[in-house]
Design a protein around this nucleic acid. Structure first.
Length: 476
RNA sequence: GACCCCUUCGUCUAACGGUCAGGACACCGGGUUUUCAUCCCGGCAACACGGGUUCGAUUCCCGUAGGGGUCACCA
């Protein structure tokens, strides 16, 4: 079984494209097939090599690799359409020779006029087939080549999501298969590439269903085996309309920068348009064992960031602490932490904030107090007013004395020492916890007291609590 | 406009003629707790509408409405 993902390098990898790639990759991995990556770069005006590199990076970031394609090669290359331009003409000549296509000398303007006239009459805009029987030869001057589409009957194909899809041939146009420039357009090129690359199952977005019968016509005209299809529903914006920038981020790259984990994005993407019983959490490995075409939904799905955020936290809690720390590092630096400050306190620190953050950006924001200079902590005025009053100064002094004597600066060690002191003082832990929290973090909310003390280290803890004591004493 | 497709809680979805229509996110309560969060428990909430077919329709068929897609010498 051979499947493919064929992005056009005219922009970042779109989340819709990412899901298509994911579906194809999963199918290949699940069934022991081959996943081919092909770059559709014939739109020379908009395609760039930078975007191509960007797309490859995004795919790898998601955890998707390809068996054949750019950078890895393969027996059916080249895998960029611009490098395959000489592959198409022989097929077109063959269709011409066999009377399955014809040369058309109508100008674009004239064809367009005809279309508008039909549209005005309430009919489907199509080419009027003026040249269909004209018998123009190779020397007819500037011309395009059009397919000689059947006028009657139906064209059918099998779709794993929609079942049998039937189209009235009367609805099909004598569309162009070779431009006057000599280059064939998309609908022709895909067919030839898919054939030459041995693709036997095409999984793509629903926006291609209406192109499929045209492509089937080409397969048939050439006497080639028509592959199987599966058209996945589209991803819609939160309001149900076509997803666009106005709905927020639409590229994989953007979500990466917003601090989403690849695991979460993959999990969210796959569940939007596919399900497997009541299961919500899927790793790539789980999916390789569970993904199937039957589970794909028919209706388009709306993008729901809240669910993505939830999944992101789920995955931040699932991956190894060291791994989370490693991925959080650049976000911490962006939040103002000096790279050299991200020492062995990083892992314990990240562990104290991951259940209070839903993205790596938020994680970094919540953990930055561990790693920035004291002056850069930033105090919340309301929290300071509420918890650092003169009355707490003696309490903090007492605690400082206790903490100064703690040998075992660990969560259990701190817990034992502080609890004993609190009990002896006859006060509630909450009485000191909040003043300490504000002293360390500048905020009224944050990680648990002991894990926070343990992670921040003795020196910084004592220094900031002392400063908090001073601030409290000076208040009022 | 023509053609194609789609339609279950606000959102993602389960159901494949007979279920109190299930799960998850979000939301609202409660519990745990040193704050917040996590976590646990509970709650709210849906078969778009109208006709058929059938002993029986969310499920099958036909309309209507709404939404999406496609109609290029773009991909």
């Amino acid at each position: 079984m051979r499947v493919r993902f064929a992005p056009s390098p005219t922009g970042h990898l779109h989340i819709g494209g990412a899901r298509t790639a994911l579906f194809n990759w999963l199918l290949a991995r699940r069934l022991g097939g081959t996943f081919v990556l092909r770059i559709e770069d014939t739109d020379q005006a908009r395609s760039t090599r930078e975007y191509e590199v960007e797309i490859l990076k995004a795919l790898r970031w998601l955890g998707l690799d390809w068996d054949e394609g750019p950078e890895v090669g393969g027996p059916f290359g080249p895998y960029r359409q611009m490098e395959r331009l000489d592959h198409y003409d022989p097929f077109i000549e063959r269709m011409l020779a066999e009377g399955m296509a014809y040369r058309c000398t109508c100008t674009a303007e004239r064809v367009e006029q005809g279309r508008q006239a039909l549209a005005a009459a309430g009919e489907k805009p199509m080419y009027d087939r003026t040249c269909r029987e004209a018998g123009h030869g190779p020397d007819c001057g500037e011309h395009v080549v059009r397919i000689k589409a059947p006028l009657h009957g139906v064209t059918t194909f099998q779709d794993h999501v929609r079942g049998e899809v039937v189209t009235q041939n009367a609805e099909l146009d004598d569309f162009v298969i070779r431009r006057s420039s000599g280059l064939p357009p998309y609908n022709f090129v895909v067919v030839i590439d898919d054939i030459e690359m041995g693709i036997d199952l095409i999984v793509r977005g629903e926006d291609h269903v209406n192109n499929t019968p045209k492509q089937v016509l080409i397969y048939q005209a050439l006497g080639l085996k028509v592959p199987q299809f599966a058209h996945a529903p589209l991803i819609l914006g939160p309001d149900g309309s076509r997803l666009s920038k106005r709905h927020g981020a639409t590229s994989v790259h953007a979500y990466q920068e917003e601090g989403y984990l690849a695991e979460a994005l993959v999990n969210y993407l796959v569940r939007l348009g596919w399900s497997h019983g009541d299961q919500e959490i899927f790793s790539l490995l789980d999916l390789v064992g569970a993904f199937d075409l039957e589970g794909i939904t028919k209706a388009g799905g709306r993008w729901d960031v809240d669910k993505l955020r939830w999944l992101n936290q789920v995955w931040m809690k699932r991956i190894e602490p060291e791994d989370l720390a490693r991925r959080a590092r650049p976000f911490l630096v962006a939040a103002g932490a000096a790279p050299e400050a991200l020492d062995d306190r990083l892992v314990p620190a990240v562990l104290t904030v991951r259940e209070r953050a839903w993205t790596l950006v938020e994680l970094a924001q919540a953990a930055r107090f561990y790693f920035v200079e004291d002056e850069a902590v930033g105090f919340d005025a309301a929290a300071v007013d509420k918890h650092l009053k003169p009355a707490v100064a003696p309490l903090l002094d007492g605690l400082l004395a206790v903490l100064g004597g703690v040998e075992d600066w660990s969560i259990p060690g701190l817990e034992a020492a502080v609890n004993a002191w609190v009990e002896a003082q006859g006060i509630k832990l909450g009485k000191v916890a909040q003043p300490v929290r504000v002293s360390l973090t500048g905020q009224g909310t944050g990680p648990g007291l002991f894990e926070m003390l343990a992670a921040i280290g003795k020196d910084t803890a004592l220094r900031r609590i002392a400063a908090g004591r001073d601030r409290a004493a000076a208040a009022g």
